[in-house]
Design a binder for these strands. Structure first.
Lengths: 352, 352
DNA sequence: TCCTATAAATGGAACGTTCCAATAAATCAA
DNA sequence: TTGATTTATTGGAACGTTCCATTTATAGGA
């Protein structure tokens, strides 16, 4: 149980009758070593139960192979999808990304960033917590650690951003609702301290203006970006003298909450009140009714972010182009009484 | 941009006019240093933009403060909840846990474990991937790294396990269904290579036997532990000559799939076919109809696992007691036509 | 045969910390 | 004043790697 002092390359060297340098070379897969020697060394490695000490190695090598992923809300499946996309590309690059959750808490985020820096990360992909102060990433910048923002951005920072075209997505969604004949629209959920919020709300507003919806007929209700937030938003909206007949929600979680609240009131989402989500998480398709949502190709954005990160590390730069991902509206059943236009859920159960 | 060579304690020492040892002591918050000296040093640390090199420190200190969390499926909200529970306790211990996803892939799991070991983790909380080979954790054991299994266990290993009482949970659920008058029951989803599966199925079977359900009236359909798996299970079951009228699902994801498939066939979950889930993820309560499920207090188990881990590290042992968490059946709307017994979703929207 | 070129293996310094043992300074008892 | 004790500070040797500069072995060319 009480583990003996752990083996080092010197133990291996002794065991295999070679020098530590040779062992090091073998460990790095250098071609300079004679195959038979390499084999002998590898056997010794196995025998002594050696585990590589990356900390010691990093002491010489300047930068590690650890990439950190800092996520603001792990319980939102949306971010899990993002993470999965990133992992796909890191995996094929032989890198294991470490994920850390900040739970939307800037203080926690500071701790997490500090810890990752101390660990000597090679780069960081971050979806910053709400309320992140402008200076939070100064440390990283002065240390020259490559950072990429995913999905969210900070008001004015030079850090590259990988995000969907929020403005356009919201525009499309609003235009769709207006096209369905809705004249009193609402935007539900989110808070104005988020840049994403500004973008989505901006697209929504632009559509309303362009397509002739009077200013007083658009209602904006801020709220938590969760089911609970959606429920609250709907209650607020329906309490108005002239309530809206359709809503674009900040994200799918809010939309689910809205649909739930509608049902609670005996209203049918889609028929009695149109709701559109944003992000198109996997659940959207499986909801009842299936949720119309703005698809942002989450996993694709994750992959993109990972690629950008890899390139930054490789070229030792801390700069990169922003990348705005294409979006498209996936029309399902939750957005208006006209059901002729609905998409079928992607090929499952059709044979039954 | 091209970061100057990063500052070390020697730079700080020079800047503050003290020795490196003094700086080191300050960094560790030692009381041996005169407050004014400490202040001077701290100022220098700020000035040179120093970041602590934990790798170098670990070279001397033998054990790090990194704890790894290895999770088999990050996209299952269930595991996110588990992670959140653990984070709560680690946070208050000043530890930032690193999460890594294995995506239910044993090969990936090997890589992840290797990487974490090389990083010099102080301990590991693992929910092992399906198909993990018995030897996968031998390395960790010989290295003396404390490991705790969460939710899942391996057939015969001495590694402590934190998990819910699967047998009892399944028993309760089955008994409930039988109490509702169901006589032909099914168990949906999961595969027999999982110990959890054996446990849950075991409880289910015991209830059936004890409460007088004939062997030929219980149907077991293995399948993926996902929505998709649930859909498939239902299709299979309904194709039988005498299909079941109720099912206990391996987990909530499967249950959601089953409900979806029922709807697709024009059947109403709850009224036409009773379905019970397992895990009681947050969505269960918000589903339509709300899902009856076995609640396992996921976050609580996460906390427990973290506590056990902390204790193991502290006492330098690799052994600990198993911990089997209490479960209880949360009856909602998805399990039978008798709606008088249903629970109300926890206090939201009641005022409307 | 000797010389050169290439291949394979090696010793030692460095990386940024910690911590022990030692020193220097300050305080106290006599 | 001196010596003993306490309080602050410090130098140096680790820790486990990498990598440069060397050395040693092997092969090829004349």
């Amino acid at each position: 149980m009480a583990s003996r002092p752990k083996a080092t390359i010197l133990d291996i060297a002794r065991e295999a009758g070679v020098s530590k340098s040779t062992v090091s070379l073998v460990l790095q897969g250098s071609g300079l070593i004679r195959p038979e020697t390499a084999l002998k060394v590898r056997k010794a490695i196995e025998d002594v139960g050696y585990v590589y000490n990356r900390g010691a190695a990093n002491l010489r090598k300047a930068h590690s192979n650890v990439i950190g992923m800092v996520i603001n809300d792990l319980t939102n499946p949306f971010f899990a999808e993002l993470a999965v996309g990133m992992e796909r590309v890191f995996q094929s690059a032989g890198i294991v990304p470490f994920i850390a959750n900040t739970a939307e808490n800037p203080v926690r985020q500071e701790e997490v960033l500090k810890s990752l820096m101390e660990q000597g990360v090679a780069g960081l992909i971050v979806s910053p917590a709400r309320g992140t102060t402008p200076g939070a990433f100064r440390r990283l910048e002065t240390a020259g650690v490559p950072v990429v923002f995913a999905m969210r951005r900070l008001p004015d920072s030079r850090i590259p951003v990988i995000a969907p075209d929020n403005h356009r997505g919201a525009y499309l969604a609003a235009a769709h609702l207006i096209g369905k004949g809705h004249r009193r629209l609402a935007f539900f959920g989110g808070t104005s301290d988020l840049v994403v919020y500004q973008e989505r709300l901006g697209g929504f507003r632009e559509a309303c203006e362009t397509l002739g919806i009077a200013r007083r007929d658009v209602l904006v209700v801020e709220g938590e970006t969760s089911r609970r937030g959606g429920i609250a938003c709907l209650e607020t909206a329906l309490a108005m003298p002239e309530p809206p007949t359709a809503a674009l929600c900040f994200n799918d979680a809010v939309a689910f909450g809205v649909m739930l609240a509608l049902r609670k009131r005996g209203l049918e989402p889609g028929a009695d009140f149109a709701v559109v989500g944003f992000d198109d998480v996997v659940e959207a398709e499986h909801y009842m009714p299936a949720l119309t949502s703005v698809s942002v190709d989450t996993a694709g954005l994750g992959e993109r972010a990972a690629h950008v990160m890899l390139k930054m590390i490789q070229s030792r730069t801390t700069r990169a182009e922003d990348h705005i991902g294409a979006v498209n509206l996936v029309v399902r059943e939750s957005c208006g009484p006209d059901r002729r236009t609905q998409n079928r859920p992607a090929g499952m159960g059709d044979a039954a």
